[in-house]
Design a protein around this nucleic acid. Structure first.
Lengths: 251, 251
DNA sequence: GCATAAATCTCAAAATATGATTTTAATGAT
DNA sequence: ATCATTAAAATCATATTTTGAGATTTATGC
């Protein structure tokens, strides 16, 4: 392991129960000398990824927030889709989520909702499980052949709890691709229904994200399901269109 | 400069106009060999701070979003204050901002607002200028003596455009401390008025953040200014109270 | 399936990261 | 304000690592 990645792995020490940490604790947990830890911490602080929270304790730093801000400001999907997401949310009264496939992790990147019902619990950055829930399923199902196989191998093949074998998984994915959307009940959260559709970059014919409209199964009873599906699909189409226009501008 | 900080400075290459970058470009801009850049990029990708966006191009990675999520979930001010911020926003119809002093940078960490008017423009992570705008002024004015002096030296002493000399700055800060709040018009944005008060950690008697209520100067005409001030101050008091209770729980 | 570009690997030389200790600076209590 | 205590930086010799040039392997697009 290189020093570089060793230094970066200091970030892994932070978690819900470890919001701040003392250099001595880092030294112990990583098997490094105190001097080295102070050097790592200094470099990470200089970069803003860490910051001194109080005497002898360090926490995650402001640079993370600033970098996230930059990513949000200029994320092509959000730039092209924020307004449309709010429109969709206003029209349907549902919460609208944007999600992406990032590295192999599926995360929400934005929420538009009529009230602030879900923001805390499901905000930007929330990791989503693999192939559970409409957002996740759409993102995975629309991956191209070879990648789909690899994703299955990595995430499901060796998981005894998985309800899918390759044939079942492949078939489920095929159905979603054919339908052009995915509807789920109670998969991520009991009592919630979600309808998701892929955002497909036209020139590459590749899925770059997914949009989903989520609400209580109760509230869905008042809505015409087919209409909501159409609206979600239409919104993703328009987002993809906007993205292409933007890309043209940036040439 | 150590290799460690050199590697981290790769992150500095990203900006509004540079959302993705090719290894060759990094090599050129940093004066490194191609092999070294690939090593840096690999380590940063492994840590999730960078990610391959398309063949031969790298962008900021998902780890940043996840870390920000964690910071948001467990930020003591937000945990203690989110609900109260929304209440204040609902009652006044104003946008309510939480801001902190982080390293020397002042940034917004959360916004509660009746409609999504300001979210895009002034979202979490937005850097605020030094001693301009109610949020910023309150955070700085409530720093203790020695720190206040150092902040002036670093940010204003050598700035010919600054409207303050030490005497004026010190006096302005003193007034804010005495009042317990700060009200500004048109300082950050034309047509907007803001009222900010400090969140003071009782046991340390130290400012840990600021809360501000912001709205068009027009909308303020309908409100009793003194009442809004009282409400903002009262909310910060209750947030500080919540924080202390939480801290007790975490012992 | 091949051609091209991207990313990793190999190796010896040189830079610099490391740990033990000391020195300086910051912090908190009296 | 002064002092005691703890945190952080500086020092220095040694050896581990990083580095760059090129060759090799892997991935990507046609």
């Amino acid at each position: 392991m290189s020093s570089l990645s060793k230094m970066l792995s200091v970030l892994d020490l932070f978690g819900p129960k470890t919001l701040k940490i003392a250099p001595d604790a880092i030294a112990e947990r990583m098997g490094l000398s105190r001097a080295t830890v102070y050097r790592y911490v200094k470099d990470l602080c200089d970069a803003g990824l860490l910051t001194r929270v109080d005497a002898g304790h360090y926490g995650l730093g402001p640079r993370i927030i600033e970098l996230d801000w930059m990513m949000r400001q200029y994320d092509p999907i959000l730039v092209a889709g924020r307004e449309l997401m709010h429109e969709l949310s206003d029209e349907t009264g549902l919460a609208v989520f944007a999600s992406v496939f990032y590295d192999g992790h599926i995360i929400n990147t934005y929420i538009a909702e009529p009230s602030d019902t879900y923001r805390f619990a499901f905000g930007r950055g929330q990791p989503l499980p693999f192939f559970r829930g409409a957002q996740s399923k759409v993102l995975i199902a629309f991956q191209k052949g070879r990648r789909l196989q690899r994703l299955f191998d990595e995430h499901m093949a060796n998981d005894p709890d998985s309800p899918y074998d390759w044939a079942g998984f492949s078939k489920a994915a095929k159905k979603i691709r054919k339908d052009g959307y995915c509807l789920t009940h109670d998969e991520l959260n009991l009592g919630l229904t979600g309808i998701a559709a892929p955002i497909i970059q036209a020139d590459l014919d590749e899925v770059v994200g997914s949009l989903s409209a989520v609400g209580s199964s109760q509230s869905f009873k008042l809505l015409r399901q087919e209409t909501v599906i159409d609206m979600v699909v239409e919104t993703t189409r328009r987002i993809a269109e906007n993205m292409q226009n933007q890309a043209a501008v940036n040439e």
